[in-house]
Simulated assay, not measured.
Amino acid sequence: MYNDFVKFIRSIYNTNDFVPLHAPYLHGNEKKYLEECIDSTFVSSVGKFVDRFEEMMQDYTKSNKAVVCVNGTNALFLALKLVGVERDDEILTQALTFIATANAISYISAHPVFLDVDRETMGLSPESVKAWLSENAEIRSGSCFNKKTERRIKACVPMHTFGHPVKIEQLVEICKEYHIELVEDAAESLGSFYKGQHTGTFGRVGVLSFNGNKTITTGGGGMLLFQDEALGNYAKHLSTQAKVPHRWEFVHDDIGYNYRMPNINAALGCAQMENLDMILANKYETAQKYKEYFKNNTDITYFEEPCESKSNYWLNAVLLKDRVSQNQFLEYTNDNAIMTRPIWALMSKLDMFKDCQTDGLTNTIWFEERVVNIPSSVRF
């Protein structure tokens, strides 16, 4: 059975060589724009490609302001600072995520609370959030507090896992009810939409990532998305060392951060954005091929986009029957030069987060024992 899958992968990627999990597509104007950037000498944080990249992303996502950062993790940290997260606050999020989500929370010395995910989305479950808050939270003077720890519950950070949108509208309503800020970790979901609206634009702030393995890449990089233009302008100010504009004086009016994306990285981003529609269409075709291949398979289930959503299918995922079959699949495919990988180690099982609050994480653990990511690069 696994041998047939290896043959199928080689046929759709038309190769007998190693098949990576997700390689970047760099066949547009990347070299041209890089040369232009180098020739201009504006390779650092000032240059036309930075502005153009922000404008292109703002137009694509229908945000009122987009602000580039050096990477997605820094962008998420800054997003949490912008919505008022402080030391010892609690942040509701999911244990099924890449460690950057939990790390960004830790940079502020806040405390992640890991709640369960939905079977339909692999993302933070509104039902789990509502149930946990009903049992543990109360509103005092317009803020939400944990009755057991006495800490303020300041924000909620859902992550759109592998590009599949969470049930974001329900989370928005719950956060409003409990006076909690919603910050979307949309690092993996550029090109994903919920009811026609781009992910990362439902909360107070949304965060994208352009790491080398993402749908588009700037080598490294991230982006903050805002509907509140004034907050976005303030984010841009903080990300550039909070320097007050002046032709020669160096005056800073706040504690800022050196989170600026260099112009040379933004040049890559502009070239990548020009091919985004093609990349997404190609990846969607691949997803349909996987869907067809696995439709009658009783041992392996292909994970499809949730209801009322359009996923970017950043990383395709399948579900094996149990941990044993998961390991067998991983071993066989990787032994045969087809790169596959399990889902991340759960945040709640890592030493630095093992004492954090959870709600039992039933679905989360179920996924951990079954999920395997399979090749998802653009096919030529």
Rank of each mutant, 00 (worst) to 15 (best):
T93F: 10
A66W: 00
F98N: 15
V83G: 09
I105C: 07
N64Q: 10
L80R: 05
L82I: 05
R87W: 02
I99P: 02
E90S: 06
T61D: 03
T61Y: 01
D88W: 06
I99N: 12
V68S: 15
N74V: 04
A66L: 01
F98E: 14
G72Y: 05
V67T: 12
L80F: 00
D88V: 02
A95D: 02
K62Y: 10
T97W: 07
L96C: 03
V83P: 05
A100D: 13
L76V: 02
V67N: 11
R87S: 10
C69V: 04
T61S: 15
G72T: 01
C69D: 07
E86N: 10
A66Q: 01
F98D: 13
A95R: 04
C69K: 06
V85T: 09
N74R: 13
A66I: 01
S63C: 08
F77S: 12
N64D: 11
A104I: 01
A79G: 09
L82E: 11
Q94E: 14
T93Y: 08
N103I: 09
T97D: 15
N64M: 05
T61M: 15
K62N: 13
N103T: 06
S63I: 05
I91V: 13
F98I: 12
L76D: 03
N64L: 02
L78W: 03
G72C: 07
A66F: 00
V70R: 11
A102V: 02
V83C: 10
K81R: 14
L80S: 07
V68H: 11
D88C: 09
I105R: 00
A104G: 03
L80H: 00
A104Y: 02
V67S: 13
L76G: 03
L78S: 04
V85C: 14
A79Y: 01
G84K: 06
L76H: 04
A66G: 04
N74L: 13
Q94H: 11
V85L: 14
L82S: 10
I105G: 07
A95H: 01
L82K: 06
T93M: 14
K62T: 07
T73Y: 00
F98W: 10
Q94D: 07
K62L: 13
V68C: 15
V83W: 08
L92G: 05
L80A: 09
N64T: 03
V67I: 14
L80K: 07
A75H: 02
N74F: 13
L96N: 08
L82A: 13
V70M: 13
